[in-house]
């Protein structure tokens, strides 16, 4: 339990806090531990499937064969949009608080894409196949949200950061 008090008297009523939560921590296992630790340190690591396809985020077990996957691959911060959708009104807890795109993004060198947000500014800036790169969160150590979102990579010379 957290250190919250067990309750107190308010007039004639005893009032106690009710926290609906799992008040314990858990391990995510060897593969995801390595993945989340590397994200915290600013590295992007995926695993290679039994058919040679590279998964990012890593698959601990091959989705096709169930085989345990142990070969790791370090990937760059750049990739492309495989498919996308436009969130015109952001909802609570989503990665951005202004209109943005959801996308399946394949990092360069990865075959299996991940779902994340793209801070494109406008729906007109989005297209299937467009190049994007990782924008890291200012504070890391929080899992998949260590990637704050992706941002478009400009094709204009000098536009690449």
């Amino acid at each position: 339990m957290s250190g919250a008090s067990i309750g107190s008297l308010h007039g004639d009523s005893f009032v106690a806090p009710l926290e609906v939560a799992y008040p314990y921590s858990r391990t995510v296992g060897t593969a995801l531990s390595r993945f989340f630790t590397s994200l915290k340190e600013g590295r992007l690591e995926g695993t290679k499937g039994s058919d040679g396809r590279v998964y990012f985020p890593p698959a601990e077990f091959d989705p096709q064969t169930g085989e345990q996957l142990t070969e790791w691959v370090t990937l760059p911060e750049t990739g492309h949009v495989v498919t996308w959708a436009w969130q015109s009104t952001p909802a609570p807890d989503q990665p951005l608080d202004r209109p943005f795109a959801w996308a399946l993004i394949a990092l360069d060198g990865a075959d299996v894409p991940l779902l994340h947000a793209v801070d494109a500014g406008s729906i007109d800036a989005m297209s299937t196949g467009m190049a994007v790169k990782v924008r890291w969160a200012a504070e890391r150590g929080n899992g998949i949200t260590d990637i704050a979102c992706f941002e478009p990579v400009s094709d204009v010379p000098g536009g690449r950061s």
């Binding site: 909802a91 807890d93 989503q94 947000a117 998949i144 949200t145």
Partner: peptide, 15 residues
């Protein structure tokens, strides 16, 4: 990998 981003069912269907 997905739920912490809260994409919603409609957005996933839209993808």
């Amino acid at each position: 990998f997905v739920t912490p981003l809260w994409p919603g069912f409609d957005a996933m269907a839209a993808l």
